[in-house]
């Protein structure tokens, strides 16, 4: 099982600006004073040692992940803007003449999680099959509505792929192409649902757009069971804990602190922080990652949890 991140930003897509890029160049040059810039090997070594926030970027596409299972059918988590690049890669890989099946699991129906669908090229290719798994009975309505005039010029009926909608029940496991799947109800405006995937002894949990009420012991126990011993948990760590339970209470999101605590209690192997606040720069996300790793270290109780921050392009083998 392999996780591929195509879109990891929360709420709305963002992009680097020219001043952002310039600031990265300035920081890189400031550190290169002692580097022999006439030596390509020295340059490579210097760049390799730069922080990810300087030499790279966490990216700005909204939520879209892919799980590669080794099977011919594809698993896609949410249809944020990241799904456009996923579709392009699928087209490059398989061409337009080889029909593919995509199992799309929706966390919920807010714009940032469905807005990539009109630009997901496979929907325009006859023979492709798109199976939308959701716990929202109105998912089909939401996907059709965003294609309607005046919002978009191509109606849902004009998609060439065959669409199917499967409305799942939280807590009731089912199987998709050899992968066991179960949904879990989460606290979010209009409801959201996490998804747990198990296959060949590996387990990945996708839990985004989920607010946690710290005082609710039953809710906490439910999430610990949902995350239980997962190899990877992708977790909504959009806000600091202080913000999540004060000025941004009821906004439907969680924090790095709660992510670590739940994953520690559930004996998870790797926590992938996800749904980054769109206002955060690469430097801020990198700082949060450093702080969260330190928090995991000082609160460790015999179980080591690896903490990562998702970025557009991250690939993670389980």
């Amino acid at each position: 099982m392999k996780l591929i991140c195509w879109g990891t930003r929360g709420s709305i897509p963002v992009s680097l600006t020219a001043p952002d890029v310039r600031a990265k160049i300035v920081r890189a040059l400031q550190g290169a004073v002692a580097v022999d810039l006439a030596d390509p090997t020295a340059i490579d070594a210097y760049v390799a040692g730069l922080g990810f926030d300087v030499a790279g970027t966490f990216g700005g596409h909204s939520s879209c992940l892919q799980i590669e299972t080794g099977s011919a059918e594809h698993i896609v988590l949410d249809l944020g803007t990241g799904v456009r690049a996923l579709g392009q890669q699928m087209l490059t890989r398989f061409g337009p003449q080889a029909p593919q099946t995509y199992h799309v699991f929706l966390s919920h129906l807010h714009w940032d999680h469905i807005m990539g669908l009109p630009f997901f090229t496979p929907v325009y290719i006859p023979g492709n099959r798109i199976v939308v798994h959701t716990c929202h009975p109105h998912a089909e309505f939401a996907l059709r509505r965003q294609q309607d005039e005046p919002s978009f010029p191509v109606r849902f009926e004009q998609f060439s792929a065959q669409f199917e909608f499967h409305v799942a029940t939280p807590g009731a496991p089912f199987e998709v192409d050899g992968t066991r799947v179960v949904a879990h109800a989460q606290r979010h405006s209009g409801d959201s649902y996490g998804w747990r995937f198990e296959r060949a002894g590996k387990c990945l949990v996708y839990s985004t757009d989920s607010e946690h009420r710290l005082e609710d012991e039953d809710e906490r126990a439910g999430f610990i069971a949902f995350f239980d011993q997962a190899d990877v948990v992708v977790f909504d760590a959009m806000y600091s804990l202080a913000d999540a339970i004060s000025v941004k209470a009821d906004w439907g999101h969680s924090s790095n602190i709660v992510g670590v605590e739940l994953c520690q209690a559930a004996r998870v192997k790797r926590l992938v922080m996800f749904h980054h606040e769109p206002a955060y720069s690469d430097s801020q996300i990198a700082q949060i990652l450093d702080e969260t790793r330190r928090f995991e270290q000082i609160t460790r109780d015999g179980h080591e949890l690896e903490v990562l921050s998702a970025y557009d392009g991250l690939e993670l083998s389980l």
Binding site: S240, L241, A242, D243, S246, S255, N256, I257, E291, T292, R294, F295, I298, T299
Partner: peptide
């Protein structure tokens, strides 16, 4: 020291 770090990471030192 440990609780100081918890306050910093959680941003409770700001509220």
């Amino acid at each position: 020291p440990i609780v100081t770090e918890v306050f910093q990471v959680s941003h409770f030192n700001m509220v």
